[in-house]
Write a protein that binds this DNA or RNA. Structure first.
Lengths: 202, 202
DNA sequence: ACCTGAACACCGTTCAAGT
DNA sequence: ACCTGAACACCGTTCAAGT
């Protein structure tokens, strides 16, 4: 069994996890992933050299955080799709869950999509991003089978959806979609416009 | 008249501009805006303290770079719209020019949209971003007057277009829209889907 | 008015040495 | 096996002092 994360004990039960948790907390607190590794160590109650027993360098820790971020996002999306609504409603709900995830975790979301950070395990990250894309793809395929969405190469439709949602997420995170600039409910109307492009006429 | 940027002369004619140029070159070279101010000074041939005569801190220089970036993007968009094509073709062409700008200047584009960097002059930046949005808005309004685009609040349509294009730009910059992952011509098909959502039936 | 050099308080990373 | 302390080569920023 694992103890809870305590401050400054003996040998420190699970330093690796404690470092990740401390870093996640700092990313949330500072709204930036430009924390210092030394402060992560400080918060975990160890010397500044200790993290190097668990991560080869700072980039590796950032990479791990991004991985955790994709897992969190994946959980949110699955939760949003766990219902009996129509495919178009599910698409809207999933999109809103995605956008909300970004707005709740802006710095983490930035980290997940910034090549600067974890250049080392970039391949790994792309796989995680693709998992997100696959959720979208299977939803779109379901809609196509039901005759709701247009019968086009599904990968193209998925790229359109993902790009729009990613764009809405980033712009709203940066405060560039405020009502006074862009009208009321910009996210709803953007998603509506997308749906109208995706759906067949009835 | 202004001399060209030379290396290590007298008092240095126009250090401010030389610093900006050096920084822009480094952003392009490293594909990252995580350069050091000391190296910018080095490349401009001055001491590491000299930049502080022209910028209060590093963030101010980053802010200036972002401003230059928005100006460059604005030039590209204006060039793309300087023709006699139909509004829907102009929208496609402008979108492609926008996406290409990001892919040619990925680190600069990242910088332009990252809150981390120039927290000081954030307001200034938002204005620049809004200028970009306004180009889109007036194009959409023109299309509405011609009865090509749907008669909806134009700000919502503009938010949809900008978000999609921003998303396509970032994802393609990060190499997440490669054909093997997302099918051929993901950008074209995404833009097509958008247009179909925007346009009235004929 | 503009720039330099030394100085301060930090980093990331390494490595001998400790438990 | 895991962690510490000192050390190295850097940063960003400040400030007296130079031209």
């Amino acid at each position: 069994m694992e103890d809870q994360v305590v401050e400054q004990p003996y040998h420190h039960g699970d330093l690796r996890r404690a470092l990740i948790d401390a870093a996640l907390a700092m990313v949330k607190e500072f709204k930036s992933w430009h924390f210092t590794l030394r402060e992560v160590a400080r918060r975990a109650g160890v010397s500044h050299a200790a993290p190097y027993r668990h991560f080869p360098d700072k980039a590796a820790l950032l990479s791990e955080l991004a991985k955790v971020g994709f897992e969190m996002l994946s959980v949110e999306l699955s939760a949003a799709l766990n219902n009996n609504l129509s495919v178009e409603e599910q698409l809207t709900i999933a999109a809103k869950a995605y956008i909300q995830f970004g707005n709740v975790n802006p710095a983490l979301y930035h980290l997940m999509f910034s090549r600067d950070a974890g250049a080392s395990e970039e391949v790994h990250l792309n796989e995680r991003a693709m998992a997100t894309l696959n959720v979208l793809t299977s939803l779109l395929e379901r809609g196509q089978r039901q005759g709701v969405f247009k019968d086009r190469p599904v990968k193209g439709l998925a790229a359109a959806c993902w790009s729009l949602v990613h764009g809405l997420t980033m712009l709203s995170m940066e405060g560039l979609l405020l009502p006074e600039k862009v009208g009321d409910q910009p996210i709803d109307s953007a998603l509506n416009t997308l749906l109208e492009g995706l759906m067949l006429e009835r």
